[in-house]
Structures are given as structure tokens and as C-alpha cells.
Design a protein around this nucleic acid. Structure first.
Length: 275
DNA sequence: AAGATTTGACCTGT
DNA sequence: ACAGGTCAAATCTT
């Protein structure tokens, strides 16, 4: 991907932010492995926010380039139907449209490789696992927990061969569930395609223990994000393990890149506070 | 008891 | 025919 457009730059930087937040979460877990602390939840919240922006931008880019997945096309059917209704607000997809077709092998997907836990704001339910030829580890299949809302987003997780701690995650389909749409309405972005990729409540291994048992506040990004950032600063100013402090010191300056390049400071602030 | 996960079977695209 | 994706009953967890 080039950085020729503002969207590309935002995508790149949000990806960096997501990786940084994942790293932060790992550090926090290492610092207090006993139970999930508010600090870890804050790191998870940051990951969720980054993931939403990344997926929204990715979807926009894919739509612009005219390449669409089959699953995306099915989701689009619902959105077109909703748009025909004339409303600007989110409409529940449920009555399901045409039967969802099995996606073609190697169908286009939004892919990312993560080390260990990632969190991107959606709740996934595992629906299958398969041993894949040429892969030492099984492939895991997840779908959005809000399938009952007509959300057809799915996620495929494959542990990489050479790096056991790394997971290749492919996202298919579009999130059409209500929580995602609400978040963007609060952002004022109102994307034509309500598409937010993804989420992983941890790696294939850490995922055990029910994603839904974690905070479902991922849908209510507005309030939770703002509180989260305030708490993060408060925590940053008080007690924190040294490795975490070092990590944060190295990461909090990345937004200057945007200001230097496109003067996106205001946008960043809006994204950070979801207001 | 309800909801989530596991896993073998079945379905479909290549 | 085979490999990969999904279904759904059984099982597990909370």
C-alpha cells in the first residue's frame, strides 16, 4: 500500500497504533498476569478503536477499487435494501436475503498477521476448525456473534508455521450489526458501507474461555473510549511497571506524523474521543 | 439452564 | 476427487 492519500496514511498509522496497543496489552499481562486489570481493558479498548478505523478504511479502499468479495456482495444486498427504504439510520438486516453462499477458496479477504492477542471490537463465535494441508496447525473459523442481526462477517485464523506466536487472520464479509453502525454515526462519518472488519479476543488459544464473557462495551465506543483515554493518562501519570512506561514513551508521539503530513491532529482527536 | 465450544459430517468450489 | 468452508449435535462451561 502506498501512502499517497490521507486515507492510506491514516490506515498505516492506525495499524501501527493497533500493533502498539497489542504490545501494550502483552506488557500489561506480563506485569500483572493474575487477573484482567482495568489497564488491560483500556489497552483492549484502544485495539478495538483502531480495528474499527482500519476495517472501515480497508472496506472503503476495496469498494473504490471495484473488487468485492462474494460475502461482501451478499451483505451489500442487505444494505441496498435498507438504502432503498430511504432511512439514513441503521436498519436491521434481519429478514435475511438470498442464502449466503459458501465463499470461494482463496476469496479476497482483509488479512493481517498478529502476534498473540488482538482485539478489534467485535465479538466472534467459533463455528469450525479444520486441519489444512501443508499447515501444522488447524485453521479456526469464527463468525460475528451478532449473526442474529444479519451480520455475516466471518474471520479465519491460521497460526503461522514459522512463527508459532504469530497468527494470520483473514476477515470476510461485512459487519452489519447495529453496534458498529452506531459507532460510526457517532463519529459523524456515516459510511456508505457499514463495514468494520474485525475482532479477535485473543489468539486461537487464548480465545478459549468465551469471547462474549469479555466486556461487550465494544459497541458503545463513544463513552467508553473517552473514559478509557482519561483513565489511561491518569494511570500513565501514576504507578505503572517500567516496561510499560518505556513502551508508552516510545509510542505516544506517533500522531505527530499525521500533523506533519496532513494536519490531521483534529481528526485524530476526534477519533480518539469518538465525539 | 443457557450459551459457547468442539468436532465429525456434509456441502461446495476448484 | 479433493480440499476447504459450514453445519449441527454433542459436550462443556458458567
Amino acid at each position: 500500500m502506498t501512502l499517497d492519500t490521507p486515507a492510506a496514511v491514516v490506515l498505516e498509522l492506525m495499524t501501527m497504533g493497533q500493533q502498539s496497543a497489542a504490545h501494550l496489552g502483552d506488557l500489561l499481562r506480563a506485569a500483572s498476569p493474575a487477573a484482567s486489570s482495568p489497564h488491560q481493558e483500556l489497552a483492549a479498548e484502544i485495539l478495538r478503536c483502531c480495528g474499527r478505523v482500519i476495517d472501515a478504511l480497508s472496506a472503503t479502499a476495496a469498494a473504490t477499487s471495484g473488487r468485492k468479495r462474494k460475502a461482501a456482495a451478499a451483505a451489500e444486498y442487505h444494505q441496498d435494501a435498507a438504502a432503498a427504504g430511504g432511512g439514513t439510520s441503521w436498519s436491521p438486516p434481519p429478514p435475511p436475503g438470498p442464502p449466503l453462499k459458501r465463499r470461494a477458496r482463496g476469496a479476497e479477504a482483509t488479512k493481517e498477521v498478529t502476534s498473540g492477542t488482538t482485539v478489534d471490537g467485535f465479538i466472534w463465535r467459533k463455528y469450525g476448525q479444520k486441519d489444512i494441508n501443508g499447515h501444522k496447525h488447524p485453521r479456526l473459523y469464527y463468525r460475528c456473534a451478532h449473526k442474529d442481526q444479519g451480520c455475516n462477517a466471518t474471520r479465519r485464523v491460521q497460526q503461522t508455521q514459522d512463527q508459532p506466536a504469530a497468527y494470520e487472520i483473514a476477515y470476510y464479509g461485512e459487519h452489519t450489526c447495529k453496534g458498529a453502525a452506531t459507532a460510526w454515526q457517532q463519529l459523524g462519518a456515516a459510511p456508505a458501507v457499514v463495514d468494520f472488519g474485525s475482532n479477535s479476543w485473543g489468539s486461537a488459544d487464548t480465545n478459549r474461555g468465551s469471547p462474549a464473557s469479555m466486556s461487550q462495551g465494544g459497541w458503545s465506543s463513544s463513552a467508553s473510549s473517552e473514559v478509557g483515554f482519561e483513565a489511561l493518562h491518569e494511570w500513565h501519570d501514576t504507578a505503572a511497571p517500567d516496561p510499560v512506561m518505556e513502551f508508552l514513551d516510545g509510542c505516544f508521539g506517533w500522531e505527530s506524523v499525521l500533523q506533519d503530513r496532513f494536519g490531521f491532529g483534529g481528526l485524530l482527536h476526534d477519533i480518539a474521543t469518538f465525539q
